[in-house]
């Protein structure tokens, strides 16, 4: 900063400079955390994003030393494939300049690129990591997929074996008739 030598600095300039210095410091301080997935891949993740993961928070509460040391925080139930997707989602949603329309387009594309199996895997990972925003997005998307679908579709989607006898099934249809449920 060349202006620093000038003695005729005005007050606002000074504060602007101080602000700038503060910014520099925070940028330096932006630390990273080392995360290790179940398939033993390590990721260096911005602390600001990693701290959004409930599982990481919990781990650091139990062993606070992990944030400073080089030891990786183990994510036992998340594979690298899922963590990459989760990071992609959070980096986009954390981006200050992302407008509402950008995020909507991103979400749509994000969802389109996942098949049903991947979607369920990702939900399990999001649930394990305890990441609220993505968890809500995925559960809502799954609800939209099974909305207005027949019983067979939902069974296939969730991989459910029907263990009802035909008599039981008929009885429960009868039992829930009050709700005006459209059973297909």
């Amino acid at each position: 900063m060349a202006e620093e030598t000038e003695s005729t600095k005005t007050e606002p300039l000074k504060t602007a400079e101080e602000e700038f210095k503060k910014l520099e410091i925070t940028e330096e301080e932006e630390s990273e955390l080392k995360l290790e997935t179940s398939d033993h891949v390590t990721f260096m993740v911005e602390a600001s994003i990693a701290m959004k993961f409930g599982a990481v928070q919990q781990y650091l509460e139990v062993s606070p030393a992990a944030s400073a040391s080089a030891t990786a925080i183990p994510l036992h139930n998340v594979a690298s494939r899922e963590l990459i997707l989760i990071l992609e989602y959070y980096r986009m949603h954390d981006w200050v300049d992302a407008g509402e329309r950008d995020l909507k387009e991103f979400d749509e594309r994000f969802l389109k690129d996942l098949n049903y199996e991947e979607l369920k895997e990702l939900l399990l990972a999001a649930n394990y990591l305890n990441v609220e925003k993505l968890f809500n997005f995925l559960t809502k998307s799954i609800a939209n997929i099974i909305r207005n679908k027949d019983v067979e579709f939902v069974r296939t989607f969730f991989g459910i074996d029907n263990d009802y006898t035909p008599e039981e099934e008929a009885a429960y249809r009868e039992e829930n008739a009050w709700a005006g449920v459209k059973f297909v």
């Binding site: 199996e117 369920k120 895997e121 939900l123 399990l124 649930n127 968890f135 809500n136 559960t139 809502k140 799954i142 609800a143 939209n144 099974i146 909305r147 207005n148 019983v151 939902v154 069974r155 969730f158 991989g159 459910i160 074996d161 029907n162 263990d163 009802y164 099934e169 429960y172 249809r173 829930n176 709700a179 005006g180 449920v181 459209k182 059973f183």
Partner: peptide
């Protein structure tokens, strides 16, 4: 895989649906 989803997660999914559709899931298994 869904059997590994806890009831909490399943309920969260169903909370986005009309109640009658949530009730209809009682026929799944």
């Amino acid at each position: 895989r869904i059997s590994e989803l806890t009831d909490d997660v399943v309920c969260h999914i169903l909370s986005f649906l009309p109640s009658e559709e949530a009730i209809a899931t009682s026929l799944l298994s």
